Amino acid sequence: MAEYHRKIELQSPDDLQYLIANVRRAAHEKIDRDLPPIEGEDKMRRRVEELVQEYISQVFHSTAPNLTINGLSPTREQLDSMLTAPGNTRSIEEYEPFNPKLWERAKELARQEEDLIEEIAALRRKMPGVAVEGVKNAFKEGMEGDEKVLRERLEGVRKRESGSGLGVGKMERQEEVERGWEKGVQGLGRLKRTMPEMVAKKERADRAEEYVLETK
């Protein structure tokens, strides 16, 4: 079974006239390029133009069965009339009637867009500071928690050490605990030293991001 091909659907005869005019215009440009106009009679150019127009007519006549204009196939008389008409066509712009509801809807959407832009601008100004403050608070809470745990462990170690003088034996794995405590203290010290630098890097990154977003 032969494969079915859907016909090319045109809305009005003007659409077909527009296609014919465009093909003629393209052919005329190629003729002007290869056979520039000269003064006086140019039999060769005239003959070439006649042959090209005949070819264009044959092409559209052969493709007419594959076209529909507003659901109907174009007649031969209709196609001949279009092919013999002047080559240039004038495009006509058509406008929809003014719709007040659509106009009000467009204005409302424009207002919403402006509100969203203002809200985004406010967030860009506010959020970097909020983020930096959140990082600072998180670091502070973490450090305070670590210091509390270290104080409690240190106090427990001191109590156990003081108890050893009263005949209490040395705590099992005491040296390992002390080394772990010393490492923890050193790590906390490094954290306290590097925290301002990390916060400063975060602030510089936020300012760079804000500048890039504002310059887009």
Rank of each mutant, 00 (worst) to 15 (best):
L191Y: 00
P86D: 13
I69E: 00
V59I: 15
R207S: 11
E114D: 07
Y18N: 07
R124I: 06
L51T: 07
L188Y: 03
L191H: 01
A110I: 07
A131W: 02
E39L: 15
Y95R: 13
Q17E: 14
G187E: 15
S91P: 00
I92V: 15
V199D: 02
R105M: 14
P65D: 07
L123Q: 10
S57W: 00
P36N: 13
R160Y: 00
R90F: 04
S81A: 15
V185K: 06
P36A: 13
M82T: 05
L109A: 14
R45Q: 10
I92Y: 09
V185L: 11
E94I: 08
K183G: 07
L191N: 05
S164Q: 14
E176A: 14
M195N: 05
K202A: 14
A122N: 09
F98G: 04
R46Q: 15
K201L: 15
L35A: 07
G165E: 12
E182L: 14
G180E: 13
V212S: 11
R24G: 01
I20D: 01
T68D: 02
R158A: 15
T215C: 08
V212T: 11
F98Y: 15
A27L: 07
E210H: 06
E147M: 14
K136D: 04
D32R: 11
E49P: 01
T68P: 03
A21S: 15
H28P: 03
R24V: 00
T63H: 09
M1C: 09
R25L: 12
Y4G: 05
E155G: 11
E96V: 06
K136M: 05
S91T: 09
M1E: 10
S81W: 04
E54W: 02
P74F: 01
P97G: 04
Q78L: 11
A85Y: 04
E176R: 09
G189L: 12
Y95I: 02
I56C: 03
D14Y: 05
R105L: 13
P128W: 01
R125G: 03
Q174A: 15
E178T: 04
